[in-house]
Design a protein around this nucleic acid. Sequence first.
DNA 1: ACCTGAACACCGTTCAAGT
DNA 2: ACCTGAACACCGTTCAAGT
Lengths: 194, 194
Amino acid sequence: MTETTAKAERPPRLSADDWAQGALDLIAEQGVNAVAVEPLARRLGVTKGSFYWHFPSREALLKAALERWEQMEQELVFGSLEAISDPRERLRQLFRLVAHEVKPHIIYSEMLKALDHPVVQPVMGRVSGRRLDYLTASFRQAGMGRTDAQQRARLTYAAYVGFLQLSLQLQQPRLHHDEFEAYVDHVMATLIPA
Amino acid sequence: MTETTAKAERPPRLSADDWAQGALDLIAEQGVNAVAVEPLARRLGVTKGSFYWHFPSREALLKAALERWEQMEQELVFGSLEAISDPRERLRQLFRLVAHEVKPHIIYSEMLKALDHPVVQPVMGRVSGRRLDYLTASFRQAGMGRTDAQQRARLTYAAYVGFLQLSLQLQQPRLHHDEFEAYVDHVMATLIPA
DNA sequence: ACCTGAACACCGTTCAAGT
DNA sequence: ACCTGAACACCGTTCAAGT
């Protein structure tokens, strides 16, 4: 009677995806280095030995988790900005979106803090490369020459990454709301071509 | 006969400074996370047990090593730029110096990659805070208003940190010499007031 | 004053055995 | 197909004992 064809009261058996999502949750909460097999197993209610049925190593788990994130983040960029046709307006909208959405930056910030890890680096390289290309194309469409657009894209993306880094470094004197808005305006005025 | 008052043929006994310098060397060579008590002890030719006579923990060793670096790096900034009186010329010189000196960025880059570590964060906060203040003062002296100077300093330092980050992330398509020079020119033209 | 050597805890990894 | 439990290696930490 405990066994029906309907999948109802199975014991909590886990899939590789469950482990990957658990790792991603841990990254968002406590950073990349908090992803450890034994604590994660405890959290999921199994013993650490069972982990090795799903993944060959901790590195492989991290890789799966980060690639899961990479896919999600790529879908986000697709949907949100393609609607705006005017290139300079699209850039302004991009700056505002980046400035005011918090959640998408959490995992990215955690990865910034853990760039030491060999699994993190290539994922970041791919994501940042794509974003740089998108920025370069946008500056071109806004009327800049090829070289100028490339350099401006690099400077702009460096400003973005650097701002996140500074926020991580100087946790005390974080900008207050009005100062932050003024800073975003300053950045837009300085970096978006007239 | 083996014991003279002259300090000649002692066995290689170590001081706390020796351990701190060894840790700093390891950071420059292999990153913050490579600082481990047992490997460092092997490298220094002693057993790991002896480490705990000098430091209470691995964290304390890291702290000592990073504060050693912080002091050195502060002396560097002092000496190199105070001679130039024209503020805009001093800014240009600062950009060029930062762009062309390699060594001082090595430890800084390793710390960027390990910002996850609680010992790294406050050191980075102090160093970056000082540099931000210096930049703000320079932009003020170059004629900008208080708020503008602060924001421009933040943007400029973010561009610096972000450029280092990008170099760490995209290790493949590093800029070639001429491209890099052109990029530095672009950054100076965009960020230094006319 | 500085070091050794043995001990313990914690986590990554392996694997035979269970369901 | 997924999990347990015991084992081993590696590193952080402690400490009694050596010089």
